[in-house]
Amino acid sequence: MKLLVITQKYNINDSNLGAFVGWWEKLAERMEKVYVLALEKRSEPIRSNIEVISMGKEKGAGFFGKFFGFYRGLLKTIGKADAILVHMIPKYVILTVPIALIFRKPIYMWYTGVAAQKQLKFSVLFCRKVFTAHDAAMRVNTPKRVVMGHGIDVSKFSIFNFQFPISEITILSVGRITPSKGHDLIIKAVADLIKSGYKLRLKIIGDVVQSHHYKYFEFLKTSANNLGIEKQIEFCGSVRHDEMPNYFKDAQVLINAVPFGGLDKVVLEAMASGIVPLTSNNAFLSVFPKDIASQFVFKENNLEDLKNKLKNILDKKLYLDETLANQLRDIVVKNHNIDNLINRIINEMSQ
């Protein structure tokens, strides 16, 4: 089978989309050829049967340049491919449809998000199937939706060692610097617990992606200073995805203060690494073990509930519970590992 993937970025070093380069490599292991049409190309594929075509963003292409780059790349590859897989961007489905109809190529889409926008609903009309990680991650009610879990490389994200003594608990908050990631709420919660006597360190991993969020970044730093915990907070900036296992290795808790919706893969990566997750995305209530799930989900934008749930984790030293760590990891290995996901995608496209 030959597949055309249409995506935003091909960059193994990207802190967010770098993980998906591994997806395309896994697909290429099981296919004759994988063409990747990317808005931006900043790294080269390691497999000879992957061909990456850029729309030109990394070369400074403007709107029309990227538009023509899209159709130039599409026309170059669509005749050679058996199917098209659009990754995350409904607009790419809509742009692809006229050419796909002419060439009679089926369109599939992978989508995880927090809202059912009009563009998503419209794009679904033209897809043969829409793959997603969870019901809440693709909220268009359609028989085309196929829920198949996420794709975590469980060989890279693995449990480290519980035997080392811990004098200070390291908490991670991972995500681009934007209000929707709730970094400010986490800073307040950690500050309150430090004042109560807990020995904590917070590492915020993520960078400013949109220029108007620099004000929010300055607000976060000012908040840390005003709360008197600037020495206990580290702004790590953007971290390559393949370096994230090193951060999980040295951490005990991950806090994910995002709204209900798509399963954030960083929570699953933390689970695979033996890190205790704490999230405000209550879609994870159906992911965590049922008997303890409520301990790891706090009410959205609720500081007191976040602090209470975090105190419970710290007071019970759940980060030292090897049984819990293995239980959480097993969920990811069984339901969200990349090999199973790739096999399911290929099987669904072969039907």
Rank of each mutant, 00 (worst) to 15 (best):
I159S: 05
L220E: 10
I233Y: 10
D82Y: 02
M148C: 06
Y92Q: 04
P90G: 04
M31Y: 03
I345F: 09
Y198F: 14
S54C: 09
V209T: 13
S350P: 07
N13H: 14
V86G: 03
E58W: 03
K9W: 00
A83I: 02
C236Y: 04
I313G: 04
L268S: 05
T77L: 01
N246F: 09
I171F: 11
S280T: 11
I229T: 02
E243M: 10
I346L: 15
K41V: 11
Y10W: 13
K203M: 10
A283I: 06
D153E: 15
E218H: 11
M271Q: 03
K57C: 04
G175C: 05
A293C: 04
M244T: 01
Y111C: 09
I205L: 15
A38K: 02
K221C: 06
A28S: 13
G79L: 03
I204E: 04
A257H: 08
I12M: 07
P98A: 08
R176H: 13
K41T: 01
V140P: 01
D82A: 10
L314S: 06
W23D: 05
G151S: 13
S280C: 10
S280M: 09
D264Y: 00
K231V: 10
S158F: 14
R139A: 07
N347R: 12
K221E: 15
N13R: 13
I194H: 02
I342Q: 01
I102D: 08
R30A: 07
V258L: 11
V253F: 08
G62N: 15
Q327E: 11
I331L: 12
L74N: 00
D14F: 02
I229S: 05
I84G: 00
N312Q: 11
V147D: 09
E348Q: 13
Q119K: 11
A81M: 04
I186D: 03
E218A: 10
Y247M: 10
R128E: 12
G18L: 06
I194D: 07
H183Y: 04
R104N: 13
V36N: 10
G69K: 01
V297G: 00
K309Y: 06
P143V: 14
N343M: 08
G113I: 05
S273T: 06
E58Y: 03
E234T: 14
K334L: 12
K316G: 05
E322Q: 13
A270V: 07
G151M: 10
W23T: 04
C236E: 12
D315I: 06
L324Y: 07
I338H: 03
I177M: 12
I6A: 09
R30P: 00
H87N: 11
L278N: 11
I292D: 06
D330N: 13
D207K: 14
I346D: 00
L185F: 09
T132D: 04
F217M: 12
T96I: 06
K221V: 15
E51K: 15
S280N: 13
I50L: 05
F70D: 04
S286L: 07
L101V: 10
I159M: 06
L17V: 03
S280G: 10
V267M: 05
Y71P: 05
D315V: 12
Y10Q: 01
P106K: 14
H183M: 08
K195Q: 12
A133Y: 02
I233C: 05
K66L: 15
F63A: 13
G56N: 07
R104A: 09
S155W: 03
Q351T: 08
N16A: 14
I233R: 03
